[in-house]
């Protein structure tokens, strides 16, 4: 909670829950995100990160609880014009060229300004590949184009679902430089990842497991709470502490099953 700050939160969630059949993918998450900061959602695959993002973007309707984004309760179509969303899949058209993809998403966001498109493509270093068909791009280039398509409308709030998966270390550094620059310009960035060493680049982390927030704070704070030297260890230790309480009542998993807690 960032109670006491004088800036209105960009994202506010209260007791968000999303249930699919017997499974609660998001199980009572509350959060406040303030402008100009990078937030990291950290957790293993299947922990509920993507569902949380989809709830915040308004692509899913919560079973209970509320999500307010840029002052509006989601889902709300109009707000989407100010949000950027880079999906886990590339989500770009393989049969279009680089610039056709960027122009297409710009049109969807209602952007007519061509310079914004150029800027986004230059930002991801695809400015010289306008007419290259996506089919001929490398995996890393596709990831970059995917990011550019989430930036064409200069969003104030950016959701990036595992943006660096399949991206080589050098490009990862470039990506994080972009994110930091955007945040410095006042944008709020929410990055999900299951790569722990990336997490330290975020201003604030939320460790997520089984749809719940396990811990939150800066990387240093979390390490301190857990009493470990690295985030990975912190995560495992915190997950170990949380597991019996979280697992025991609803599921019939054996009490010593640590696998179930971590995966």
């Amino acid at each position: 909670m960032t109670a006491g700050t004088d800036v209105a939160p960009v994202v506010e969630a209260r007791e968000l829950r999303k249930v699919f059949g017997p499974i609660a993918a998001v199980d009572g998450i509350s959060l406040d995100f303030t402008p100009g900061r990078i937030y990291g959602l950290l957790g293993p695959n299947g922990s509920g990160k993507t569902t949380l993002i989809r709830l915040l973007v308004g692509l899913a309707r919560p079973t209970s609880g509320t999500a307010r984004v840029l002052g509006t309760e989601m889902p709300e179509r109009q707000v989407l014009g100010r949000i950027g969303y880079m999906t886990q899949a590339d989500g770009i058209y393989a049969d279009l060229s680089v610039v056709e993809n960027a122009r297409f998403f710009a049109s969807m966001y209602g952007v007519r300004d061509r310079t914004a498109i150029e800027e986004a493509l230059d930002l991801v270093d695809l400015g010289g590949r306008h007419s290259t068909p996506v089919e001929e791009l490398s995996g890393g280039m596709r990831r970059r184009l995917s990011l550019a398509c989430a930036l064409v409308h200069r969003p104030r709030l950016l959701f990036l679902d595992e943006p660096t998966v399949g991206v080589d270390p050098a490009l990862r550094v470039v990506f994080w430089e972009h994110f930091r620059r955007l945040a410095a310009d006042g944008a709020t960035i929410v990055v999900s990842s299951h790569v722990m060493d990336e997490a330290d680049r975020c201003d604030e982390l939320l460790l997520i497991l089984n749809g719940r927030v396990l811990a939150r704070g800066s990387g240093a704070q979390i390490r301190e709470t857990a009493g470990t030297h690295d985030l990975e260890g912190a995560f495992l230790r915190l997950a170990g502490r949380a597991a019996p309480a979280a697992e025991a009542p609803p599921r019939e998993a054996p009490p010593n099953d640590r696998e179930g807690a971590a995966s």
Binding site: L59, L80, G81, Y85, T87, A94, F105
Partner: peptide, 14 residues
């Protein structure tokens, strides 16, 4: 399947 619809729906398109 390719995720473009998901992404399209995250824009203000009707």
């Amino acid at each position: 399947v390719g995720g473009t619809l998901e992404r399209l729906l995250a824009t203000p398109v009707r």
